[in-house]
């Protein structure tokens, strides 16, 4: 189980928490505003009041030790930048996801060490643009992949000794064997870019390559299990 700390209790934090599977993630909300903290507790969330400017208090909640992911969701960019710098200094491997309010805060958050920047306004704008440009596609994906249906996107890394190691993409046939669509492959040797499966038929899969697939949740689980089993054997 991963430990997730969400700094700042607001609309975005609530939406993110609703999407996180509580079986997989242990979530802690951190606030410095007592009223908001009381509201979080009243709404059933595990919440602590700390001063995020104090490194000792950050360590006390597990930054640098037990925490795997930190969401910096404070409403002021300066607070998020300060928190990101502090958290990154305490833990080099911590996944930090920060929200930005003003456009120029993005670069600062990246410089401070955030892994992912969330700009709600940009995301919203782009989503509306998708709806204008490709209404049918966006509508379907919103309701299936991003919605209540069990159609999901997943990434699957190829472990050592799995049956997929050294096999060719053209032999995968995921759509027939597992009812999955292979969206693409990230080859660590070639960088972080996604390679499209159709163009890479002769691509040989190595350990550490990541397959990005789309399909029903149970099929994804079956595929993951098969890979895991083959690697254990």
């Amino acid at each position: 189980m991963k430990n997730v700390v969400i700094f700042g209790y607001n609309r975005l934090a609530v939406e993110a928490m609703n999407r996180l599977d509580t079986d997989l993630y242990q979530i802690l909300v951190v606030e410095f505003d007592e009223k908001l903290a009381a509201k979080a507790i009243a709404e059933g969330f595990d919440c602590k009041i700390i001063d995020f400017r104090n490194d000792d208090e950050l360590r006390a909640i597990g930054i640098g030790t037990t925490v795997d992911v930190a969401f910096c969701f404070f409403s002021h960019d300066a607070d998020n930048v300060f928190l990101t710098i502090s958290a990154r200094a305490l833990d080099k491997n911590l996944t930090i996801i920060a929200v930005m309010e003003n456009h120029d805060a993005g670069e600062k958050l990246i410089a401070a060490g955030a892994n992912k920047i969330i700009n709600p306004y940009e995301i919203c704008g782009r989503k509306i643009h998708e709806l204008i440009k490709k209404p049918d596609m966006t509508n379907i994906l919103d309701h299936t992949v991003f919605g209540r249906y069990d159609l999901n996107m997943a990434e699957i890394a190829i472990p050592v000794g799995s049956y997929l190691q050294d096999s060719y993409v053209c032999n995968l046939n995921l759509n027939e064997q597992f009812n999955l669509i292979l969206i693409g492959i990230v080859d660590k040797e070639l960088g972080e870019d996604l390679h499209f499966s159709i163009n890479e038929k002769q691509h040989k899969l190595d350990v550490g390559d990541i397959l990005v697939v789309m399909g029903p949740a149970n099929e994804i689980q079956d595929f993951k299990k098969q890979i895991a089993n083959s690697s254990h054997n």
Partner: peptide, 23 residues
Amino acid sequence: IQPFQIAGLLAAEYVGQPVAVEA
């Protein structure tokens, strides 16, 4: 369109599968 809902979904998805989200 609810900006915070989409952003929250994206943030939550990113925790588990950053590569898939970016893809």
